[in-house]
Design a protein around this nucleic acid. Structure first.
Lengths: 265, 265
DNA sequence: CAGTGGTCTAGACCACGCT
DNA sequence: GCGTGGTCTAGACCACTGG
């Protein structure tokens, strides 16, 4: 019936052509083009696998391979029983160069809250406080030993009640002990707090790595398959050059644009 | 024969357990753990699909699903006829906050070259120069119309002869015309050049987005499946506040750590 | 040319979300 | 309960790479 098939049960080929694109890539292309042309808009349902299989005269597995590729590219959502949707692509801007600037702090929380509100959304942060021994990664940046305890403030940040990023701050014991930093909840701002206890951050070192999320991060942030994250590690130093804080943020790529404003000398 | 199988041709389940992890996830876990424990080291060959299928008593397709997941996480390479290997994870540091700083320029090229050499590798850049009309994205940042021509310097940057990143610079015609910027090849540094023609960059705006690469980017950079990239857009402004350059870099996540040093006020 | 990964089919059952 | 996606099998042929 189909003009495509020349061989049953094996590799199908197009008549008069030696090879060209795989079948599943042709199915993927068709959908990609439909999305580009906005025939399928963000939020729209993608036709069921069975329907696409019949439409393109291929097996359901082949359709699945195409859909998998598109999901990996971040174009589609997936989920048992739910059907597939075209993903929306709104991004929140996060001003990392002014994040610790005192002018952006308020009684309403830290600079991140301000950023979110300015963009017309509602921020929320869940903070838990622990005392723990540091990982290699943290100990090295705080310049302490692996058995020296640190105070950890673990944040999950929400926007409009959707989980949006993870941000864990680590403080050396001698900096945090007996201060507001030991208090759970969204207590004003770390930048502000650090300054108020005599450890204003005079220098910041930001390291950014791009990678796929771990299973755990993926679950906590409710990430779709194939959605990359940035791991942002900020180390803050006080006037004496001592590291007083390390913040590790896991930032879903599809929901953020990171922004730095620089004035080179 | 296998204690795992209760149902033929359908979902297999473990005796005494209601559900738990899928078979392909168990196969993936086994390999992930072997890699973590360095029983499989970067460069090592992964056992053939057939062998893994027999080892875990599953079908080859199920093994493939596990291998696909690991490849998407950037842990394995793939390739027809070649077998699979454990990928190495070296990352290059890129100092973005001092990238335009005049002290890091030399006759050997721009600050990127310096960064790479300091980390013990050999940089190379292929540069082509074009005159083109800008995309929406570029025109908006250069504050020009869509029909005003721009000078485009397209770079492919190599490290040890491997393609490493794409970096395209866009200049307004009135800035670039009749200057070194029109010359192809690796002509010293854009920061340096811009200063020498009276358009030193006094302010920089960096925007970073994390996403999956397009097919084209993936091919140009020879990226493995499932490897995310950062799209880094730097807009440079001269003393008068006029945008004089936009640089768009496509940065493979698994090969880079981006670094910013900041001194908050 | 042998061995490996890449693509494809046909059919089956399971688990989840919704109405 | 129906429809959707998720998992799995068994078997087949193709295409590339390397000895």
């Amino acid at each position: 019936m189909s003009t495509y098939k020349l061989v049953m049960g094996g590799r199908t080929m197009r008549a008069g052509s030696s090879d060209a694109r795989a079948l599943y890539e042709r199915v993927a292309d068709a959908l990609r083009i439909a999305i580009e042309r906005e025939e399928l808009k963000p939020g729209d349902m993608v036709p069921p696998e069975q329907e696409l299989a019949e439409l393109h005269s291929v097996s359901r597995q082949t359709v699945r391979q195409a859909l998998q590729q598109l999901t990996n590219e971040g174009l589609l959502t997936s989920g048992r029983g739910r059907g597939r949707k075209v993903r929306s692509q709104t991004r929140l801007h996060w001003q990392l160069s002014s994040y610790e600037s005192s002018t952006r702090h308020s009684v309403e929380g830290d600079a991140w809250n301000t950023d979110v509100r300015e963009q017309g959304h509602e921020p929320r942060q869940d903070v838990t406080v622990n005392i723990d021994t540091p990982s290699q990664k943290i100990a090295q940046r705080l310049q302490i030993d692996l058995d020296e305890p640190v105070v950890v403030r673990r944040r999950i940040r929400y926007v409009d009640d959707m989980p949006f990023q993870l941000a864990d701050s680590y403080f050396p014991m001698d900096v945090a002990e007996g201060t507001l930093l030991m208090r759970p909840g969204d207590v004003s701002t770390p930048g502000g707090i650090l300054a108020s206890i005599g450890h204003a951050q005079k220098k910041l070192l930001d390291e950014i790595q791009i990678r796929m999320p771990s299973k755990e991060e993926s679950d906590q942030l409710n990430l779709p398959a194939g959605s990359p994250v940035a791991e942002h590690i900020r180390t803050g130093y006080n006037e004496a050059g001592k590291p007083v804080r390390v913040m590790v943020s896991i930032i879903p790529g599809d929901r953020h644009t990171l922004v730095y404003e620089l004035e080179p000398k």
